[in-house]
Design a protein around this nucleic acid. Sequence first.
DNA 1: AAATCCAAGTTAAACGTTTTAACAACGCTG
DNA 2: CAGCGTTGTTAAAACGTTTAACTTGGATTT
Lengths: 341, 341
Amino acid sequence: MKVTIKDVAKKSGVSIATVSLVLHGNPRISSETRKRVLKAVEELDYQPSMLARGLVMRQTGNIGFVLTEDHFLRTEPFYTRIFLGTEFGARDSNHFVLLATIPTDFSESDFLPRFITQKNVDGLIIAGKVPDAFLEKVARYHLPTVFVDFYPAEGEHSAILMDNIRGGMLATEHLIQLGHRDIAFLAGDMAHPSIRERYLGYHSALQQHGISPNPELEIIDEKKTGKESGYHAVCTLLNKGVKFSALFACNDAMAIGAMECLKKQGFKIPEQISVVGFDDIESDAFQDPPLTTVSVPKYDMGIEAIKLVREMIEQNLKKNKKIIVPVELIVRKSTAAFAES
Amino acid sequence: MKVTIKDVAKKSGVSIATVSLVLHGNPRISSETRKRVLKAVEELDYQPSMLARGLVMRQTGNIGFVLTEDHFLRTEPFYTRIFLGTEFGARDSNHFVLLATIPTDFSESDFLPRFITQKNVDGLIIAGKVPDAFLEKVARYHLPTVFVDFYPAEGEHSAILMDNIRGGMLATEHLIQLGHRDIAFLAGDMAHPSIRERYLGYHSALQQHGISPNPELEIIDEKKTGKESGYHAVCTLLNKGVKFSALFACNDAMAIGAMECLKKQGFKIPEQISVVGFDDIESDAFQDPPLTTVSVPKYDMGIEAIKLVREMIEQNLKKNKKIIVPVELIVRKSTAAFAES
DNA sequence: AAATCCAAGTTAAACGTTTTAACAACGCTG
DNA sequence: CAGCGTTGTTAAAACGTTTAACTTGGATTT
């Protein structure tokens, strides 16, 4: 039936131990035997059984990837890309990534993903914000865990985060360098750390360039962070009658909503008003005009997450580590040099 | 460390064999012993090791889910929902679903997902169209396979498909019942079986109601099937100057594009023209007006896929089976009774 | 020449299950 | 009371690996 280590051993005239040692690169095997074994492995297309290996090594070879159902089903494939990154990263160490969603309103009475309760994973990656009830419940299993794009309020953890502050600075500095001085900031849900940080970056860039922040230009009390909020925020801004030549939205959805409103009001983008977003979502390039934004390396975040969780599995000392991945400014057509009007 | 069957055996004063038999519901165990064992299992929170079990049963307990990268990263979470369905379905039989993407242009020289080459799955679910090169390569592994929303050109297979013909009929009949007679059909990519079938449904409904199809009303030569194609198709239709009071687009994206064009031309929807789409994508409910459409049970397709692949794994006779899942008409606000203009 | 060391392999136990065949205990039958 | 069937339980093999401990035979040291 299936080719086992025994078949390889027989074919190359050695014991199964030798085969195993060869496969693990043990130096005690003569290069001649090594060659013979490798040849047999090749010819038989031998694939070690993960099951048998896992049994003796007491490892499953699996890593769990958990996110809320909402996040997974988002039209914008943000977490999907992160997942894809983990899949890719897992190839190196021959792990498998098991994905499971949890209810967005996970409560004490909900079940954990099976791979956790059945101890079928060696480590865990938790992507995006998850309910506290989930965190509490999962903590009981003491699995090496890495958070991605989320950091729990309590305790010390390993996490992969993006450099929101720097992103906010990059976006703002880009506008400053284009000659803009009156730069609006649009946001909702300031309770969210990422958004708060982007705001911080905006502020800090202004100050570094000697521009004193004007609270009138900060529309930060939108309820949500979708297109509608962006649209509405611009309305608010225009109603105030305060002068501005550029705006930085805390994410692309708001930026796109903002552009819609501006265009409807007859403003030319970027000639009259420059717009910068954040996230680099799929549709940015297809906006009119294509949106300048801060790009987040989703794929890399997944790869880093796997690396980190693997590290934690190997040296199972709980060395908590935060990795901040860099972001990048993508200049498209929605920003232009300041022009006196 | 981890609780094993031995611990349960010791605690309940029986042999490990007995524990195993109890857990498998073997009737030869006295109900008294059974109770004792079950109690111990409960108290120790014993979870059988998938690895050990898999080793002796020669099953991995995993099912592979493969789709192209494009499909997985689509903004519209169609396949994502199907995947979620498989995840859910897999709970019953305690399988795990491993997801892997393949390059959209998979060629002979590309590698198969690791779980296939390493024989780490018992069966395979292939979602959406995949390249022939992939099919050829994967066929060599003789895995029980179920296709979802795709049926290979060659050979006999198991598959979960949606009832496109009936969907086309439902949509068209809905319009006919509203009193419409001049019903346009919009499509692109007629090479795609799903679209061809929807077209068939449209035709068949017309004929059943004694309406002879008017080729002038069929715009079926669009290159693609996106919003732009829908927009463009309506332009073509209007330029022809042919009279119509309703239109059925082969998918929601085209329907939405069509609505945009119609609205721009000053038509009122649904007062002057009724529009029906197909797919029930996320944004339908947020259109203006909300789009009437044919809904596809994505989640169920996933569940059915798991059921079928499990069936194939159990009785490993290659009983190929096609399951056609029913679709459903969702009436929203984009359709109304015919009104003479 | 005995003792030691080394290189290259091998033996065998262990991992945690499932399952078959064997077994013990008991009541029944003839 | 010998033999038989039934009922409930267990011993043991098997699944495919890894790895610590051991063997073997030749080279080197004392």
